[in-house]
Design a protein around this nucleic acid. Sequence first.
DNA 1: CATTGAGGGTGAATCGTTTCAGGACCGTGC
DNA 2: GCACGGTCCTGAAACGATTCACCCTCAATG
Lengths: 338, 338
Amino acid sequence: MHVAAISVRDVAASAGVSVGTVSNVLNRPDKVSPSTVERVQAAISQLGFVRNDAARQLRAGRSRSIGLVVLDVANPFFTDVARGAEDRAAEDGLTVLLGNSDENPGRQSAYLDLFEEQRVHGVLISPLGDVGDRLSRLRARGTPTVLVDREIADRSFSSVAVDDVAGGYLAVSHLAAIGRTRIAFVGGPHSIRQVVDRLEGARKAVAEHPGVVLETIDTDSLSVLQGRSVGEKLLARPAGERPDAVFAANDLLAMGVLQALNMLGDVRVPRDIALIGYDDIAFASAAVVPLSSIRQPSALIGYTAVDLLLREAEGGEDFEHEQIQFQPELIVRASTAG
Amino acid sequence: MHVAAISVRDVAASAGVSVGTVSNVLNRPDKVSPSTVERVQAAISQLGFVRNDAARQLRAGRSRSIGLVVLDVANPFFTDVARGAEDRAAEDGLTVLLGNSDENPGRQSAYLDLFEEQRVHGVLISPLGDVGDRLSRLRARGTPTVLVDREIADRSFSSVAVDDVAGGYLAVSHLAAIGRTRIAFVGGPHSIRQVVDRLEGARKAVAEHPGVVLETIDTDSLSVLQGRSVGEKLLARPAGERPDAVFAANDLLAMGVLQALNMLGDVRVPRDIALIGYDDIAFASAAVVPLSSIRQPSALIGYTAVDLLLREAEGGEDFEHEQIQFQPELIVRASTAG
DNA sequence: CATTGAGGGTGAATCGTTTCAGGACCGTGC
DNA sequence: GCACGGTCCTGAAACGATTCACCCTCAATG
């Protein structure tokens, strides 16, 4: 468009002041006499001046945003995390840039590049695969980083997570407690730490219950679609070879499994197969058979992560990295009744 | 952090070339001899140089992003739209910035300010209330704008929408066809055009079916929670005064209603109350009673909107604004069976 | 041999905001 | 009358990538 862009210079000329004064009106109005403030503001709205954020950031050296990379925006768990993060960021006048890696290392990497080029205030990431080195470099160059829903073993990063081993343990202990003995764990890929931990928790619970066996069914991702195809595979088995309980690594998968099982009338949840998911998303309670699940404080995770990030940014290089861990909670509904 | 930021100047010095050449390596490697490209790239990775996007944008005058303001990120319909938009934007090397107005005019306005300060390539918005003037000014200053899921009467804006009147008509005609006569429309606020249109379509269908009456129940927003409270209110009525069918303005509301009705055993869906939603989100088919709905091509809407935006940006001031409208589709499931 | 043009490279100017050292002005206190 | 401290403003410098007019070389051409 050929509309000449209006700059502080134009505003200054129109109001009969210097550019420095315009900037002061914008950023420290108390340092400018009221009459001048008024004159400048009149010029601003008359000319339709809009601050150029790029110039601002260039000067400032940092943007006023925080980058957040999640595994899947379609998963309500992550939108809840994002909402919590936004809330905390807003308290400090910051914005959250949401990047969806879609469980794809290439996209994850692209977002990290983008955020670094944008000189974001910091990065929150629910990491995929082995990005420890990448993140170390990022941090070394001055961008603080907090891991969301994951802690890295060597404690070199700050993190906010939920104890997924405990969650897996809760889920399977519950299934065992209601008398199920042939349990299937559905989830994948194993590059996602949560999947591995929940499985580990599941194994731990099984070990404590003699007579209970655990089968694992791998999936390519944690989506409704993948769940549905697992459900179809279960239906295809002879009745005797089906598990009598399924622990899905998240609610999306669980709902997919549920959809598939529900298509054919002869398998009933929870009568034939009990089903429990993970995350306790809002839709879980509205499922065909209301879904038992493991609840995580999702918004709180996001909120805390930003908080930690800001403290880390404040503290500088020598900041003591902190690992915060929340405990999950078992929510029992109809899908594991009896 | 005290890590000195690396600039093109440092890279140039280290590689023994001029800054102009470094820039050329970054942007037009074919204009630089292979040996020089290699030398510069070695310097870049050795120094850990990362382009400063703010400086880039300042010079370029525009950012490489598109702003998208949606009514509710928790609504899968909008995340699908966003996904479609991202896909199309990626084809042109652009990024999508997602802003959630949460049906709040203040937040909507804040995002528009932010996007304008960022000098985004363009804005996609699912507008709330009366923002025509605001958007006109935005466009006058050079930011092309496309309305998503809404067209403005005077055709002064480009838009991508679905015919919501037709959708409302489809839903209620279907309810009438299965013999329901006391239909309740649940939705709100009326500042959302979709709500108004779907209601209009509903009225149109009712008018064609003598003996069918329509009641409207207003809500403050289109969320599961609001739906649940409507459901509770319906339950509180004497059985004879309840509608025998509910048309909810979106699936979230419908699922809320369904949850509430399901808590008490004496009202059954669809036997006592048939229920149909709108958007056909992925969770609709996994609901307690699989939900009938009106499907919209959500990802396609986002994709097309960006496409239109880019064409408009290309065309300049004299671009002929275009209104694209898709047709919705009725999806019948158990919640309106019989 | 002079001319032309292409390929490869240079570096100062530019984008728009913020910052900061300093200047003008005015009232106060000695 | 003068120094002093405020208050209010000024305007040049800086941030870092990109652009563009220009320069240099060298080979091909007439």
